[in-house]
């Protein structure tokens, strides 16, 4: 499996092909969202909703050996695309890798300018929640 850094570089490369056209970039993000695996209906509940997002985002984490697998969904297509990027980078990693990950691709592709401040705050809330899951599992694995 490629490293977190390699995958982020891949994403940066993909976005650089899109150039400065904001509309095509958004369309691309939405297409990424379509590739998200189905989210289990039973988990679509209040306690799995991430606070701080304008649109609804459900996120759960599952243990796979020493690694964490994330499953997520949203009621908006653009947000689904953003989640799929985060999952691509962070899912299937160890809690330590996730906790320590420096997600440089977000600034590098200028995500703030593409999605605006409201959604950037939502994106930050998603990352925070993923890292909190990682921290919880790390603590569990160490005890």
């Amino acid at each position: 499996m490629s490293s977190i850094t390699d995958i982020q570089n891949e994403i940066i490369e993909e976005f650089s092909i899109l150039g400065d056209d904001k509309e095509s970039t958004i369309f691309y993000i939405m297409e990424l969202g379509e590739q998200l695996p189905d989210f289990p209906e039973a988990e679509r509940k209040e306690e799995n909703i991430i606070k701080g997002c304008q649109s609804k985002v459900w996120l759960i984490a599952q243990e796979e050996g020493y690694n964490i697998r994330f499953l997520a969904d949203s009621n908006t297509d653009i947000t689904k695309g953003l989640i799929s990027l985060l999952i691509r980078v962070l899912s299937g990693r160890t809690p330590k890798e996730i906790w320590e990950a420096d997600l440089f691709f977000i600034d590098k592709i200028g995500m703030g300018n593409i999605i605006g401040s409201q959604r950037s705050n939502g994106l930050a809330a998603m990352i925070k929640q993923m890292k909190l899951y990682a921290l919880a599992y790390q603590t569990k694995q160490n005890t």
């Binding site: 904001k22 970039t25 947000t79 999605i115 605006g116 959604r119």
Partner: peptide, 9 residues
Amino acid sequence: FDVGMMLDA
């Protein structure tokens, strides 16, 4: 939200 963002683009 998505429609608004695409119009903004």
